[in-house]
Write a protein that binds this DNA or RNA. Structure first.
Length: 156
DNA sequence: GCCAACGTTGGC
DNA sequence: GCCAACGTTGGC
């Protein structure tokens, strides 16, 4: 089992939206970066755990946890001319972009702010804290996962 | 809203 | 294949 961090803008789709879905499940779509795409297509697997990160909002940071319930499959929005994520160069034969499905697991009592993550001396290799890293899907190591969960728990 | 950093595009 | 121009991301 592996660990990941997925970014989302909570004004568009935050952890509360996920929790309120009928199945508490939603396709993670709209990823339009090749490196992130490769993770979704090739490496993210059913059962993997995901930090749900809120970006571009008042309190940026990790808001909670989700779980992968369906592994990489072609992102439907790339074929939909009405979608913001439509990609005219993609075809069902040759899809360019991939989704996974995620299910709500838990929400932290408080968002674990980016500033606290950056201040954590053990977290130096996570893409999130590295200058210029903009990936919206990134791997998290097992020790990072445990450290950040611990940090979040201490915020009660 | 600003701006730094990065990715993508397209002319040559 | 280079590289300038442009668009996007995302923290602040």
């Amino acid at each position: 089992m592996r660990y990941w961090l997925f970014k989302s803008e909570p004004d568009v789709f935050g952890i509360d939206h996920l929790a309120q879905r009928p199945d508490q499940t939603e396709p993670w779509d709209g990823v339009r970066n090749y490196q992130a795409r490769n993770f979704l297509r090739d490496e993210v697997s059913v059962g993997d755990k995901v930090f749900f990160y809120h970006s571009s909002c008042k309190t940026v940071g990790i808001a909670g946890i989700a779980e992968v319930v369906k592994a990489g499959y072609p992102d439907a929005t790339q074929f939909d001319p009405e979608s913001d994520y439509y990609d005219p160069k993609a075809t069902p034969d040759k899809p360019r972009w991939f989704s996974v499905d995620v299910k709500y697991v838990s929400k932290f009592a408080r968002v674990l702010p980016l500033g606290m993550i950056k201040d954590c001396p053990q977290i130096t290799e996570l893409g999130l804290v590295k200058k210029g890293h903009r990936l919206s899907v990134m791997p998290v190591t097992e020790s990072e996962w445990h450290i950040l969960n611990e940090l979040a728990g201490r915020q009660l």
